[in-house]
Design a protein around this nucleic acid. Sequence first.
DNA 1: TGTAGCATGTAAGCCGTTACATGATTGA
DNA 2: TCAATCATGTAACGGCTTACATGCTACA
Lengths: 186, 186
Amino acid sequence: MGQDLPVTSYALLGLLTFGDELTGYELKQRADNTLRFYWSSPAMSQVYSELARLAQHGLVEPFSDDEDGGRPTTRYRITGEGRTELRSWMEDGPAGFPVLKHPVALRLLIGHVGDAAGSARLLRDYLDDLERQRKDLDDVRESLRGRDAAGQVFRYPALVADWGLAYYDSEARIARDILGRLESDS
Amino acid sequence: MGQDLPVTSYALLGLLTFGDELTGYELKQRADNTLRFYWSSPAMSQVYSELARLAQHGLVEPFSDDEDGGRPTTRYRITGEGRTELRSWMEDGPAGFPVLKHPVALRLLIGHVGDAAGSARLLRDYLDDLERQRKDLDDVRESLRGRDAAGQVFRYPALVADWGLAYYDSEARIARDILGRLESDS
DNA sequence: TGTAGCATGTAAGCCGTTACATGATTGA
DNA sequence: TCAATCATGTAACGGCTTACATGCTACA
């Protein structure tokens, strides 16, 4: 109750609420498929240290997995206390406004320091990145098909993935528009 | 040449390229009107320590301002070396993809841990926040009118502000859409 | 007279990253 | 047999925040 961990801790804890038990390694992979797009995927080393902390607080439970055929590893499952804590975190006041670290917008802001060609290149590179990123997220989105209806496990992850796709589309529209405005300067 | 400072340092340096000389306090205010929306506005204490570092590297120049009528303070101006360094940073490889810390999307991802009403409230609160934020940015945008044409000082800041406004509009559209989808579940 | 804004910092501490270290298993 | 992947950490360090400290000026 009110353990007040860093948000990333709750984020990782949340990834353990989908009915399965993961190793630290697998948890990192899941983070790369989800958190990466609208939070940030913690480094491998942090995944382990967060898991250790969560275990210390009794929010996750480690257990050794000696399944025949595989080498023994440590898996983690969320505890009842973990679920309670997570729920109370979700209802704890306003979520807070998103923080954007947008190096493209930042460079564009001081575009007058460079030349017009530089700003145009900046935006075109961004459009390329967006396409790649959109593709990645789209693959994730497709992998949820069939379990994404109301009431199903991946309903919410699917909603969030759709959000992300719409966001990338919007960014691309905006970047193209600004690029056009820059080109009409000359 | 290749001093490799943190991005926030370059960001603050960039804010000194608009033809005026600022105190640390004023620089913080400018950051709140610009960086806040697509980077992050550093704490007051960090503004001072970054200025100290920039001065140490010769990228800004402090000087005392004893203008009659005001109490003496320290102002900073960008140096020639500072401009050079900033330009080379801007052209230094790809800008990097934006990192989003989106607590609303994060909470929505694990919406199944709470109840449907919680997710709906989350989104409605976000829509309120968006409106406030949009208003703030719109005030900033309006303050640039008249100096935002091609070739003028605030051309690029205006482009970035327009980007931000379009982004907020897009977020609101998406959030409303998801809210609608959630409501049609029941 | 008191409060809000202007102005400038120091210190402690957490979050998160990179670099480093180690070793088992699987498949080409 | 060699490389990639699985698997688990430790150590050092940087960035950034919060809390704290100080004092002046303008104005209600």
